[in-house]
Amino acid sequence: MQELLDELSRVLGRGVSVDDVAGRVVAHSAQTDDVDQARVRAILTRRVPADVAAWQEQLGIATATGPVRVPENAALGLQQRVGFPLRHNGVLVGYLWVLGDVPGLDLDERLAVLAAQVPAGERTPVRVVVALEPRVVRTVPAADAVPDLPGYVGVSDPHPPDRTGAAYQQALAAAELARLDPVLPDRVRWSELGAYRLLLGAAPDEVLAGLSEVLLRTLEVYLDCGCEVRAAAERLHLHRTSLYYRLGRIAELTGRDLADGGARLELHLALKLVRLARRP
């Protein structure tokens, strides 16, 4: 692979590199004058930084069937580049990156050879941790302790290593909300954001998973009634003892404390989003 990359770099007059789908730097050509700080960070750590991976994912590299032109992003220290998906036997295994623009060359044969040489990467889940001031981004195995970073810090849910971009977006949102909402701790996990997760696009079905139609109806009526047990029991035609039993089951299945205002808001919003999604 190294010889092919060096040859390709000479032909194109550009720095080139190959990353696997987990974001690990597999190989790179000898550095040229056009190398940028984003690529330097990746080479030094042997992994594509999570913020760079997020930017590339937003531009569709993970689902592309052909070259993707990535514009300059000064905030990330990233110059213009072109990404070529590498597929072996129809399976995405990595990406060839060319710094700058690419002249009109037929690279299909070289891409096929490169794809066949990309090693299968490990699939250990990872978390991304983001601190805001100063901006620090860390990618760590999900089972490891969260790094002790200063200031407002956000921590993502565990993600497959090829989804560090999505994990970065979770961690960044958590850190920003920790700074904005005084109720939240300075260090907060995505899973602890409650209703904010739904407002940021998380699936409401995940919040309500495990609840039967009967329990969903019970929960919605209870919340619609302002958590007044008497009013909810009357609307549901239940004895209050039966309602308390159902509410206990709901709390057990969702892992939410129904006495907590934030949990109530999250559940109520999830119910309404599910109902909204049923519109024709």
Rank of each mutant, 00 (worst) to 15 (best):
D6C: 08
R87E: 02
E213D: 14
Y152P: 00
V98I: 14
V40P: 14
H88L: 03
T254C: 11
W55Y: 13
L211V: 05
V274D: 11
Y222H: 08
A202H: 03
R230A: 15
A62F: 05
P204C: 01
Y244H: 15
D19R: 05
G121T: 06
D34E: 11
N89W: 09
D260S: 12
R127F: 02
G13N: 08
T65C: 02
Y244T: 11
A145R: 06
L44R: 14
K272F: 05
Q56P: 01
E3F: 05
D20A: 12
P85Q: 10
G248W: 13
L208I: 01
V16M: 06
G226R: 12
E57M: 11
G83S: 14
E176M: 13
S242K: 11
G151D: 00
P280S: 15
Q2V: 04
V52T: 11
L276K: 09
H28S: 09
P185R: 02
G262Y: 06
V91I: 14
L271I: 10
E72G: 04
D224G: 09
V118D: 04
G165D: 07
R14S: 15
L12V: 12
R14W: 10
Q31A: 13
E252D: 15
V16K: 03
N73I: 03
R69T: 15
A277P: 07
A174T: 03
L258P: 08
L216E: 15
P125Q: 07
T218W: 05
P160R: 10
V188A: 00
V129R: 00
G210I: 03
D162A: 03
G13Q: 08
L243E: 04
P161Q: 04
D51V: 02
G210T: 04
V98Q: 11
I43C: 06
A202V: 00
A75L: 02
R10F: 10
A115K: 03
D6M: 12
G226K: 03
V146P: 00
E228K: 12
H28V: 05
G23L: 07
D186T: 03
D181A: 09
E133F: 00
D157A: 14
A174Y: 01
S9L: 06
D205Q: 10
L258S: 09
L132G: 01
G13P: 08
Q169V: 13
R41I: 04
D144G: 01
R127C: 05
P103V: 03
H159P: 04
R246M: 15
L276A: 10
H28Q: 06
V155N: 00
D260R: 10
C225P: 01
D148E: 14
L132Y: 01
R81W: 04
A115Y: 07
R39W: 14
R197P: 01
N89L: 14
G261S: 08
L99V: 13
H237Y: 11
P204Y: 01
E228Q: 13
Y168W: 12
A195R: 00
A131P: 06
A74G: 05
R81C: 14
A173L: 12
V126H: 04
P85Y: 05
V183P: 00
L223I: 13
A174Q: 02
L172A: 12
W55S: 02
G66R: 14
L78Y: 07
Q58R: 14
V214S: 09
H88F: 11
V188I: 09
R123Q: 15
L200C: 07
E228C: 09
V136A: 00
A53T: 02
A54M: 06
V136Q: 02
I250T: 04
A231L: 11
H268E: 12
P71T: 05
A115C: 08
V68F: 06
A173H: 11
